[in-house]
């Protein structure tokens, strides 16, 4: 079996006396994509943000395999965490304004991520940004336009380009196509799938939409009221859901 890249264990988050997620655990192999599915409020985004470090977990472990051994992301200092977010761990949000500065150009957003990783040569940065935008099908002649002039689907593409700019080993996607028109969402989904297939990135995809999870992942966990109720191969969760809640989700998705 392939080596694990990410191992999450006992991840728990309380907001005061309100439980957001409890005892979330899973292991992902290098290059694999795992899904977290559940309805809104199930705790899936909280779990993802705890992994990213944007939300401070109450307890648990988030081990990431790096050259030289595994590190626990929950034990990093703020400075270490910021460093990690530049070149090792990227997160793509449902709302592009969380991952991008809308009042900066598409090229400028990407350049910002590259310079954070130490890129200094202007023409090298331009050329890398151009390649990245090309890869996500953003027309090169829009490179110097402000992102706020872009459509929702295009913004999401720029956010993806920025997220993969420094070839992170771990990519977290939080409802990456939710809120887009169906045909636009389909295009963005295709793009994500091809990024996952053509790179060695390890990914965690959070979505309430079973079709998104089934398109992007081979394994998934199901969350309900903060807990993991079931884990399995993605097609098994669809065809032979074990838990009452998963059965409900599947029959609702079938309509």
């Amino acid at each position: 079996m392939s080596e694990w890249a990410l191992h999450v264990e006992g991840l728990t988050k309380w907001y005061g006396s309100t439980l957001a997620c409890r005892d979330v655990g899973f292991t992902v192999a290098a290059g694999e994509a795992i899904g977290i599915i559940g309805e809104s409020g199930s705790g899936k985004s909280t779990a993802l943000r705890c992994i990213a470090g944007d939300v401070r977990a109450s307890s648990g472990r988030v081990l990431l395999q790096k050259e030289g051994g595994a590190i626990d992301l929950l034990e990093l200092s703020d400075a270490e965490r910021r460093g990690l977010r530049v070149d090792t761990l990227s997160i793509v949000f449902q709302d592009p304004s969380e991952g991008l500065d809308l009042r900066v150009t598409a090229g400028g957003n990407i350049a910002e991520r590259l310079t954070a990783a130490g890129w200094r040569n202007f023409s090298a940065i331009r050329s890398r940004a151009r390649d990245l935008l090309d890869r996500v099908d953003v027309p090169i002649d829009r490179m110097d336009d402000l992102v706020e002039t872009f459509s929702g689907g295009m913004r999401q593409r720029v956010q993806l380009a920025k997220a993969v700019a420094n070839e992170p080993s771990l990519l977290l996607l939080d409802e990456p196509t939710t809120g887009l028109d169906a045909s636009v969402a389909a295009g963005v989904l295709d793009l994500i799938r091809s990024l996952l297939e053509t790179t060695r990135v390890t990914a965690v995809v959070v979505s309430h939409d079973m079709s998104v999870i089934s398109m992007l992942t081979s394994r998934a966990i199901v969350m309900h009221q903060g807990h993991v109720v079931e884990a399995g191969l993605t097609d098994q969760l669809f065809e032979d859901p074990q838990h009452a809640y998963t059965q409900q989700l599947v029959s609702a998705a079938r309509g």
Binding site: M1, A29, A186, S218, R219, G232, L233
Partner: peptide
């Protein structure tokens, strides 16, 4: 383990059902 099954499936087992698991686009 699911992870192991996923690997083995991909590399060693073919499954052809009545319907194509459509991969759009």
């Amino acid at each position: 383990d699911d992870r192991e099954v996923a690997d083995i499936r991909r590399q060693q087992i073919g499954y052809v059902g009545q319907f194509l698991r459509a991969e759009p686009r």
